[in-house]
Design a protein around this nucleic acid. Structure first.
Lengths: 341, 341
DNA sequence: CTGTTAGCGCTTTCAA
DNA sequence: TTGAAAGCGCTAACAG
């Protein structure tokens, strides 16, 4: 019952020419007579021909698919990066296959292995916080599959390109900004300690505090350990309910922490920014909706994705992938001042 | 320089057996002697064998990939649905390939055609607001590719399964809830008029107002026409800045509209919910962060995805895809009461 | 400019 | 229980 798909052979037979010529004609290969090309294109259209991508890939060794592995879907940052990747990829005739590692090293490895099965031409990956060893990535590279890493890169992997921002400098500037506004008791809310980006943002905080000789209140420092949205909320509420010192500013490591912080403080009756200033990190669109709007470090989310895709596709076009000289792209961040400071 | 990938032939040669046997052994086909199977598995492991997914697909006619087409990435609703799809798909050994139609019918068609090239075993799609005709989808179905549609289904497509919620009833209940709270001047903020879900939600609003004999103030009705976040903000601000009647409640058709409405009203000096109640639609996690938290219609986003995947995979296992009896799954919604009402 | 032919790596009859 | 061989549909080298 199922209508067999039209293939090159069908067109070839109908026109009494060879399969090869049909293939070339469809590729608009100039070595085919124009009249033949025209006939082929018309017939193909007429017969409803659709090339078989799988056969094409097997034969050509290219799938035109980029594999993307992110720690989670429900993080606007990663979605923005994916949008950026997709944007660039499509312009260059690539599709993207997104997998979530669900914040688990094991899943990350599995996803990587599944991509190793030849489905993708290259991989863009953001390591999970659990990822301590990079042998799985090196092994992929050794097989000649191009890799680009972005965000949270704990260890430089030779042979892979890297796209990142200078997290420590960015948070240094943000904290410095608070200090220059006259804030003295500046708290810090970061994410899971194992994650490089949070380590760096914490470092930037400490550096700034020390650079300006501001005493650090250990009590005002929180490293959230939750990996899911709903628990972050609880953790931050609990934090503010138990501290004895009242801060006059809080620097937080994500927009979400910033918003949750504002929510909690507002509910406790504090005025923002009068009593307490709050800064977020990411600039993912929501800071602008909240009242008061959230001042934050703005990182080029979409652009990170574009750059990652650009680097990867550039690798595809290199002659010998084993001579690949690793490129590290550092993108600029800036502070967006809104009502919360 | 590039290490050639190990293939079945390599294992076969090493063990002095045929390719077929190796293939069967790796499949754990019981028709292979156990000792042979063991040897093959060990050798494969040892040699670092990785099956070639593309070759497998070409030969077997299955890719184990589900194509997903959504109108946009930066809409938490779609991401949640994708998570649901992914969740179910993975458990059944499928991967998902997500494409955005960028709110454009043309892109939707292109994406569909690209999936038609044999890369995916089936398709889950949410039509754009521009999608008026469904011939492109019918044509896919005619080729024997299983399709499941979700959200915003303007026209039932025979041969495709549908996953949806009863938008009109859901919004009826929400508006009814406001009415029962004693609200009289209830405004409505919906999305682009071409979108079926917004038409239905508007209908529910009208039905409720009429059912309770509440006069409708045309002036308090807004159909947002923006397709991008930033413009929604402007549109809603402009709306409230120009109306002459002050509402005592606003029913909005997305969480985002709800949040933007609250933001705008708060900035204008209104108290929520004392002066004006606000209800959103979606329950996508953010309503809970805002102060005040947003009451909203909760729809089972994740579950929609799971169901869609379930239906699709069920279609894969049907013997004759042309006898497919269309299934329509309607999921339940409920009202989550928070501080904004 | 066109055709012939040999794969791409795997699955799957059919025969042994 | 195993092997030989014919594809899956397309590309690309080579020959003409």
């Amino acid at each position: 019952m199922k209508k067999r798909r039209i293939k090159l052979e069908d067109i070839a037979r109908k026109l009494n020419i060879s399969i090869a010529t049909v293939s070339r004609a469809l590729d608009k290969n100039p070595r085919v007579k124009l009249s033949t090309q025209k006939k082929v294109l018309e017939t193909a259209e007429l017969m409803g021909y659709m090339p078989n991508q799988i056969a094409k890939s097997l034969s050509s060794g290219k799938t035109n698919i980029i594999g993307v592995i992110i720690p989670r879907y429900d993080e606007p940052f990663f979605i923005e990066v994916c949008r950026g990747i997709d944007h660039y990829a499509r312009e260059h005739n690539y599709k993207i296959l997104i997998s979530s590692s669900r914040n688990s090293f094991e899943f990350e490895r599995e996803n990587l292995m599944s991509f190793e099965k030849g489905l993708v031409d290259g991989i863009i990956l953001s390591p999970t916080h659990e990822t301590e060893t990079f042998t799985h990535i090196r092994s992929i590279i050794k097989k000649g599959i191009p890799v680009v890493l972005f965000d949270n890169i704990k260890e430089e992997v030779s042979g892979a390109d890297h796209v990142l921002i200078e997290d420590d400098k960015a948070s240094f500037s943000a904290v410095e900004f608070l200090i220059k506004k006259g804030r003295k008791k500046i708290g810090f809310i970061g994410g899971i300690k194992e994650k490089k980006v949070f380590q760096d943002r914490f470092k930037g905080y400490l550096d700034a505090m020390r650079a300006y000789d501001i005493p650090i209140h250990e009590e005002l420092i929180l490293h959230c350990s939750s990996l899911e949205r709903q628990f972050e909320d609880n953790e931050i509420q609990h934090f503010f309910n138990t501290i004895n010192t009242t801060p006059d500013a809080i620097f937080t490591c994500t927009d979400n922490y910033g918003l949750l912080t504002m929510k909690t403080l507002l509910k406790m009756g504090y005025k923002i920014p009068e009593d307490i200033s709050v800064i977020g990190f990411g600039d993912l669109g929501l800071g602008n909706i909240f009242v008061p709007s959230l001042t934050c470090v703005s990182q080029p989310n979409f652009e990170m994705g574009e750059k990652a895709a650009e680097l990867l596709i550039a690798q595809f076009n290199e002659s010998n992938e084993f001579n690949h000289v690793k490129k590290v792209i550092k993108l600029k961040t800036n502070l967006v001042e809104r009502d919360s400071t």
